[in-house]
Design a protein around this nucleic acid. Structure first.
Length: 272
DNA sequence: CAACCGCCCTGGGAGC
DNA sequence: TGCTCCCAGGGCGGTT
């Protein structure tokens, strides 16, 4: 499942293949995704020049002279560069066909992803973007920021950091990992955690994401070749997916609880 | 407003 | 081996 590091890796992988290219056509095979694909997208984007590929949270933004193509990979989505003549498979819902024989192909078995075409001037006001919190790796995501925001909040710290209004891009896996590294019990109320502990948490969130992005670099090399190869960061995970297995620090079996319908794994000994 | 839950979807694993 | 069941989960939108 693409978390922020994978989205970042995807952006870095596809950007050189897209920037400066002209869009010949867009092929929409499945318009029914998490939300309907923007009406008339194919017609509107044909002939556009791709200027820049960026990212906001987990939204990939492909800026063109005809508007911004905004894509979210949801749970199971991926993007790759393929020869435009390559036959599509069952879950290949969208192609952005480029001049020169290649295409950007969007694949998403569970259809939790989304694709929009937005006017550049409307981007900041788009409902999916306008309420997003700071980027976790930016300086705006600081101890002061998170600590102040957390005051008087009763919500559990894990739910708090996974809320994209507070900070973007911290999904279930990295929330679990960062809390373990910071030694904070996931169900502790956000408003009752000291500033010093927020200092540790903010650092661990940044570190774990940065490390995962670095690992993504390995995938980057053959990005256009095969699929996104899930699990490249898997060997680094200390708690996620390890319920019942011994804590790598103290050896006690890791516990699993459900928080907001999400699997939550922690060490009762190391996390307080 | 906060807290919570339902929902969108399908592959894969467990259980029988 | 094949069926059925259930779970994974980002994130919005609706309800309480």
């Amino acid at each position: 499942m693409p978390e922020l590091p994978e989205v970042e890796t995807t952006c870095r992988g596809i950007a050189p293949c897209l920037e400066g290219k002209t869009v010949e056509a867009a092929i929409i095979r499945q318009a029914k995704l998490r939300w309907p694909v923007t009406r008339g997208l194919a017609k509107k984007i044909s002939g556009a020049l791709i200027e820049k590929v960026t990212r906001r949270g987990k939204y990939i933004l492909i800026e063109t002279t005809s508007g911004v193509l905004m894509m979210h990979l949801g749970m199971s989505g991926s993007l790759k560069i393929v020869p435009s003549k390559q036959l599509s498979e069952k879950h290949d819902h969208f192609d952005l066909v480029l001049a020169g024989g290649k295409a950007l192909r969007f694949t998403d078995p569970r259809k939790f992803g989304s694709i929009f075409l937005i006017k550049k001037e409307d981007l900041g006001q788009h409902k999916l973007l306008k309420n997003l919190g700071p980027e976790p790796l930016d300086d705006g995501f600081s101890v002061e920021y998170l600590y102040q925001l957390s005051r008087n909040k009763k919500v559990a710290i894990k739910t708090f950091v996974m809320n994209s209004h507070n900070v973007v891009g911290v999904g279930n896996i990295y929330a679990n990992e960062a809390l373990f590294r910071a030694g904070i019990k996931p169900d502790r109320p956000a408003g009752k955690i000291s500033k010093a502990r927020y200092g540790v948490l903010v650092e661990e969130i940044k570190t774990v994401l940065a490390e995962a992005i670095k690992q993504g670099g390995t995938t980057l090399k053959d990005f256009t070749g095969s699929d996104g190869k899930p699990g490249y960061f898997k060997q680094e995970l200390q708690v996620y997916g390890r319920a019942g297995l011994p804590c790598e620090v103290c050896g006690k079996p890791l516990k699993e609880i459900r928080m907001a319908q999400r699997s939550t794994v922690y060490c009762a000994q190391c996390q307080k």
